[in-house]
């Protein structure tokens, strides 16, 4: 049985055709896998390798190199808090404590219902509004206790 639904397989095949060479779509394809499964498992990577006609070791090497890809599922909403220098000067450590207490999970842990996970991230390119908050790759501006409390209302 494939690791993917027929619709997902179509999306992956489309990534093999999007750019001038099939391998150029690999990182984007793995981004799709991460979005669907919240992680990239060896089984998923093996199927991607077949579709891209690449060795498994190549795909698994890429999947385990990039921080956006995880081997265990993140929450359906993946929250990042920047701890780069500017955000650290702006008090990112306090917001990390706030995330831990408000969401009830430690960094890199996923809530029991699978909804939320949070992690410190390297510079998110929003140093003027630190400590910067990111939800599913979208900048949310400065992290505040109010914004963090609202994360629990996400579906």
């Amino acid at each position: 049985m494939s690791a993917f639904t027929p619709e997902q397989e179509k999306v992956l095949v489309a990534w093999t055709k999007r750019y001038p060479y099939p391998n150029m779509g690999l990182v984007e394809a793995l981004r799709s896998v991460q979005e669907w499964h919240r992680c990239v498992t060896p089984a998923a990577a093996a199927r991607v390798a077949e579709l891209f006609e690449l060795p498994f070791s190549r795909v698994w090497g890429v999947a385990t190199f990039f921080p956006s890809f995880t081997t265990k599922p993140t929450g359906r909403h993946r929250v990042g808090l920047c701890h780069g220098l500017s955000c650290s000067l702006a008090g990112s450590d306090k917001m990390e404590t706030c995330l831990e207490e408000t969401l009830g999970t430690k960094a890199f842990e996923t809530s029991a219902d699978g909804k939320l996970s949070w992690e410190p991230m390297e510079c998110l390119g929003a140093c003027e509004q630190g400590p910067a908050l990111l939800v599913n790759d979208r900048l949310q501006g400065q992290a505040t206790p109010d914004k963090i409390a609202k994360l629990k209302e996400l579906k």
């Binding site: 999007r18 750019y19 150029m24 990182v27 984007e28 793995l30 990039f66 921080p67 890809f69 991230m121």
Partner: peptide, 10 residues
């Protein structure tokens, strides 16, 4: 012009 995204590596 085509777009491509990275995956979190500086």
């Amino acid at each position: 012009i085509d777009l491509m995204r990275g995956a979190g590596a500086y």
